[in-house]
Design a protein around this nucleic acid. Structure first.
Length: 365
DNA sequence: GAGTCGTGGCG
DNA sequence: TCGCCAAGACT
């Protein structure tokens, strides 16, 4: 049984490796700075962790900088306009994160005096903060020895102990292993070290085991094939869904836009009029589904891959006189960049405005 | 527990 | 080219 006050030798090796090979990231306080007493800003840690959920470091960096410039503190974000937050998040994906980010900032400002709770349990009670983010913020910003488990840690742990039971079923057992390894001293650096190791050494493909601080400990390496881990349950095939999109442009150079409902796919984001994405009918779409009759011209098909389905959108364009619409508004083309347009909508607009229809592509199969 | 929920980069 | 997946949360 491990003494709670001592640090496991594996953790010592990992922290030593982290001191030499840690990544410098905009939201991170490096080990030398921490040694001088510099604390991580809980707002920075929380903001980066939410952005990093299922998202790469490279994708997050510019968004993190933009958010800090627009809203330097959690109270600024709490009083921001929701539309501005959604527009700033546009392109980063998983838009429920942005809605919950705003809710969380409001809760911190209103219910916690503008300071994040310093415990894992207190953090987890906030919107958009689950098991991982609560543990990460608690460990990194508040030095709480919380067991941080993300995809990187799952990969490292599954290899270190050669866990052959498939995820997600094996997750509780893995978390117990992490908890046993997490040191009382420097728990935040330990968590970040595990993730850096997973991102740079213990990678999904071709891990650099010769450079790994766990190379003498790793059961999977001893057996011979670390790349085989972690074992995951088989995944289902993506269904294909079809839709039609209608890009209406007026002589005043304005485009008809709408706001999607707050819940569900692309919730709260901006769109051009589209048929729903749930229709699974095969074959061609038609301009009959447009919000109003006009000279709708086919402009091509946009294919966009979501997490659990593939969407093929036939794009139609028409020049139309501006008219009153039940839901929606006419937005100047020069101001489209400031809208909360998800990537699939930018593709659709691009296809409608710029590209030439390709006779070999298109609607019907 | 199994579905839902984006996007872009990479081997 | 295309499947895989990257610091998950919520229902």
């Amino acid at each position: 049984m491990l003494d709670k006050t001592s640090t496991a030798p594996e953790a010592e090796r990992l922290l030593g490796w982290y001191d030499r090979h840690h990544r410098d990231l905009p939201w991170r306080v490096s080990p030398p700075m921490r040694a001088r007493g510099v604390k991580a800003d809980p707002y920075h840690v929380w903001l980066s962790e939410v952005m990093l959920q299922q998202t790469t470091v490279a994708a997050v960096k510019p968004y993190f900088a933009k958010f800090l410039a627009l809203w330097p503190g959690v109270n600024d974000l709490a009083t921001a306009r929701s539309e501005d937050v959604m527009a700033a998040w546009a392109g980063l994906g998983y838009y429920a994160r942005a809605r919950n980010l705003k809710k969380c900032a409001e809760a911190v400002a209103a219910e916690h005096g503008g300071r994040f709770p310093a415990t894992e349990a207190g953090l987890k009670a906030l919107p958009g903060i689950g098991d991982y983010t609560a543990a990460a913020v608690a460990a990194i910003a508040f030095d709480e020895p919380a067991a941080v488990m993300d995809g990187n840690v799952e990969r490292v742990i599954s290899r270190l102990y050669a866990i052959s039971d498939p995820l997600p079923g094996s997750k509780p057992a893995m978390k117990a292993k992490v908890a046993a390894l997490t040191p009382q001293e420097r728990p935040g650096d330990f968590a970040q070290a595990m993730m850096d190791l997973g991102a740079t050494i213990c990678t999904p493909k071709r891990p650099a085991c010769a450079l790994c601080p766990f190379r003498e400990d790793c059961r999977a390496l001893a057996v011979g094939d670390p790349e085989h881990y972690p074992v995951k349950a088989a995944k289902k095939a993506k269904p294909v869904r079809r839709a039609a999109a209608f890009v209406a442009v007026s002589p005043q150079r304005r485009m008809l836009l709408q706001r999607r409902p707050d819940k569900g796919l692309l919730g709260g984001m901006t769109q051009v009029p589209v048929t729903d994405f749930t229709s699974r009918r095969d074959g061609a779409t038609s301009p009959d589904a447009a919000p109003f009759p006009a000279g709708w011209q086919p402009r091509g098909t946009v294919v966009h891959i979501f997490t659990h389905f593939e969407l093929r959108v036939d794009v139609y364009r028409a020049g139309v006189a501006e008219r009153a619409v039940e839901d929606g508004w006419w937005e100047p083309l020069d101001n489209l960049a400031a809208q909360a347009l998800p990537s699939v909508m930018k593709k659709i607009i691009e296809t409608a405005i710029v590209s030439t229809p390709d006779p070999t592509q298109g609607h019907a199969q």
